[in-house]
């Protein structure tokens, strides 16, 4: 485990996202509720749309380019579309958002 503080939850808009640059590319950090965050790959498996720019509803995000919908928890595409995005461990400590950098490294290598 290598929890890294990436910022405060209030820096992410409610039902919105922000990106964190990492050595393996951009990770999207979503805020779905006043006190809930998720982290996934920022890139849509369809044509690479930046998921952090999508509309966040419930615990899902809709890709801004062609409206594929992904679960933020499992990363699985919803409905008729087939595909999955990587999800990463993220947690809140007080208002701080912590990402597990080790896990991000591992999952991208796999």
């Amino acid at each position: 485990m290598n929890w890294i503080d990436v910022g405060h939850i209030d820096d992410i808009p409610l039902r919105g996202a922000q990106i964190v640059k990492t050595s393996i590319g951009c990770v999207a950090v979503f805020r779905t509720d006043e006190q809930e965050v998720f982290a996934t790959s920022n890139s849509c498996p369809h044509k690479g749309g930046p998921l952090s720019e999508g509309i966040v509803h419930g615990r899902k995000v809709t890709c801004p380019l062609h409206n594929w919908v992904f679960s933020l928890e499992t990363g699985v595409a919803q409905g008729a579309d087939a595909g999955q995005i990587a999800t990463y461990p993220v947690r809140l400590d007080g208002g701080r958002v912590l990402l597990d950098l080790d896990e991000i490294g591992k999952r991208s290598a796999a």
């Binding site: 890294i4 964190v20 640059k21 950098l101």
Partner: peptide
């Protein structure tokens, strides 16, 4: 500020 990434970890080591 909101148009910039929340953080840049490209220099952090990921083991």
């Amino acid at each position: 500020r909101h148009f910039k990434p929340l953080a840049d970890l490209t220099l952090e080591a990921a083991e």
